[in-house]
Amino acid sequence: MVVFRALGWLFLALAVAVVVHDLLTWWSQGRYPFSTFGSLWAHLDPASLGNTQTSVRRHLSGVLWTWMMRPLLTVPAVPAFLVLGLVQLWIGRRDLGRPDAGVLMGSRPRRRRGGLL
């Protein structure tokens, strides 16, 4: 469950990073670009995007690129990262119907911390 929560927070951080990137682009160029997965990939490493397209078309199928990868690359990044992050956090939530510690595993004595309580 920790992995799902970590992935959820990572996706939410990516959404924030994309919003910051879009706002900085809007501030410098005067237009607000809605970043897609394809535009982010092309911004980070354009050569690998072209190599991936060539490899998928050559070794797998041109139909796979046209009907699966191209629509996936046109998805807006911020809503997708937000949805992915919230779903991962929901999957990795802590209260998944676990029984109380005293029922099956026995009760553990609680440690007292220093102070008044």
Rank of each mutant, 00 (worst) to 15 (best):
residue 96 L to K: 05
residue 63 V to D: 12
residue 33 P to R: 01
residue 68 M to V: 10
residue 110 R to M: 05
residue 26 W to F: 14
residue 108 R to H: 15
residue 34 F to D: 08
residue 11 F to R: 07
residue 66 T to Q: 07
residue 21 H to I: 04
residue 25 T to E: 12
residue 71 P to H: 05
residue 16 V to S: 01
residue 62 G to R: 04
residue 75 V to L: 11
residue 19 V to R: 04
residue 38 G to T: 00
residue 12 L to A: 03
residue 36 T to D: 06
residue 22 D to Q: 07
residue 59 H to Q: 15
residue 1 M to D: 10
residue 101 A to L: 08
residue 114 G to S: 13
residue 46 P to N: 12
residue 40 L to C: 10
residue 57 R to A: 10
residue 116 L to K: 01
residue 48 S to E: 07
residue 71 P to G: 02
residue 92 G to C: 04
residue 14 L to C: 14
residue 65 W to A: 02
residue 7 L to E: 14
residue 63 V to F: 11
residue 74 T to L: 15
residue 96 L to G: 00
residue 20 V to K: 07
residue 64 L to M: 13
residue 93 R to P: 02
residue 81 F to P: 00
residue 82 L to M: 12
residue 73 L to T: 08
residue 69 M to S: 03
residue 51 N to R: 15
residue 48 S to T: 02
residue 93 R to V: 05
residue 55 S to I: 12
residue 5 R to C: 08
residue 73 L to D: 10
residue 22 D to L: 07
residue 14 L to Q: 08
residue 15 A to T: 07
residue 12 L to C: 02
residue 33 P to Q: 09
residue 65 W to F: 11
residue 34 F to A: 09
residue 111 R to V: 03
residue 95 D to I: 05
residue 100 D to F: 10
residue 80 A to Q: 06
residue 44 L to V: 01
residue 105 M to Y: 13
residue 4 F to S: 03
residue 76 P to F: 08
residue 85 G to D: 00
residue 44 L to S: 00
residue 5 R to N: 08
residue 19 V to S: 05
residue 102 G to A: 08
residue 80 A to P: 00
residue 9 W to A: 12
residue 116 L to T: 01
residue 19 V to L: 14
residue 65 W to Q: 02
residue 40 L to Y: 04
residue 59 H to T: 15
residue 71 P to M: 05
residue 8 G to T: 01
residue 42 A to E: 11
residue 22 D to R: 06
residue 43 H to M: 13
residue 58 R to T: 04
residue 27 W to Q: 15
residue 112 R to Y: 01
residue 76 P to L: 07
residue 7 L to N: 05
residue 14 L to W: 14
residue 92 G to I: 13
residue 85 G to Q: 02
residue 57 R to S: 09
residue 22 D to M: 13
residue 27 W to M: 15
residue 83 V to E: 11
residue 107 S to T: 10
residue 44 L to Q: 03
residue 98 R to S: 13
residue 97 G to F: 14
residue 72 L to S: 02
residue 90 W to E: 08
residue 5 R to G: 11
residue 11 F to K: 02
residue 61 S to G: 07
residue 95 D to R: 03
residue 2 V to R: 05
residue 70 R to L: 07
residue 48 S to D: 11
residue 20 V to L: 11
residue 23 L to C: 10
residue 95 D to A: 09
residue 89 L to Y: 11
residue 39 S to R: 01
residue 65 W to C: 04
residue 5 R to F: 06
residue 66 T to I: 09
residue 25 T to R: 06
residue 40 L to V: 05
residue 63 V to A: 09
residue 103 V to N: 06
residue 116 L to F: 00
residue 62 G to T: 03
residue 18 V to P: 00
residue 85 G to M: 01
residue 76 P to A: 10
residue 9 W to S: 06
